[in-house]
């Protein structure tokens, strides 16, 4: 199992966790996964699946803010070259909304019994896992009902865009997902319209 996990793309490490979400720090600065990516973390008993819903890059110390350093540099890359310590003073984090878990090879589209463990690794889901996970659109409901810093429409659209890329026919996947959304959102046609507008690639 560990061998398989090593092959998967390791993104970071859990540094904060709750039942509904967790935050991970990226191993490399600026290397957070795209918004809406399906990621997972492995617990002793279950694999937790989540959608990347937010990402930040900030100073290691909360009180210290970076200052502008590029006045005399020719381009922004040169700032990092002349101040190599910067890479050590900043960190990138991303937040993940938990949408389901897998236990005994079976997928469940509801919250896991326990939150993610601190310091467990976070991986990007493989193509097969994404296909398997998106066989049901039950996770959309969790996304629509979340209270986040970003609008839910943005998150839903980003997640569907990301997942659709693993299919040979992304269009038909998006149509099916759109129909599911139309049913879920029932009366609120404006919301459907907003999401539809963001799904187009």
């Amino acid at each position: 199992m560990n061998i398989r996990m090593d092959n998967a793309q390791r993104l970071g490490e859990v540094i904060e966790a709750s039942t509904t979400d967790f935050t991970a720090q990226c191993f490399e600065l600026f290397q957070s996964p795209p918004l809406g990516s399906l990621v997972k973390t492995i617990d002793e008993s279950a694999e937790l699946f989540g959608i990347v819903c937010h990402a930040t890059t900030a100073s290691l110390e909360t009180g210290r803010r970076p200052i502008a350093r590029g006045k005399d540099e020719t381009n922004d890359e040169a700032i990092y070259q002349s101040n190599p310590q910067l890479l050590q003073l900043l960190r990138s984090e991303f937040s993940v909304l938990v949408v389901g878990h897998k236990k005994n090879e079976k997928l469940y589209y509801y919250l896991p019994p326990k939150p993610a463990r601190i310091h467990s690794f976070v991986y990007l889901s493989s193509t097969d896992e994404m296909k398997e996970f998106s066989q049901s659109f039950d996770f959309l409901n969790v996304l629509l009902n979340s209270h986040l810093l970003i609008p839910t429409e943005e998150l839903v659209a980003a997640a569907l865009r990301q997942i659709s890329q693993v299919f040979e026919d992304p269009y038909s996947f998006l149509v099916t997902a759109g129909k599911e959304l139309a049913i879920l959102l029932g009366g609120d046609f404006n919301q459907i319209k907003t999401i539809m507008g963001k799904l187009k690639q």
């Binding site: 149509v175 759109g178 959304l181 139309a182 049913i183 046609f189 539809m196 799904l199």
Partner: peptide, 11 residues
């Protein structure tokens, strides 16, 4: 067409 297809049969 995308919108039309999604709305047909749902909305």
């Amino acid at each position: 067409p995308f919108m039309a297809e999604v709305i047909t049969g749902t909305g």
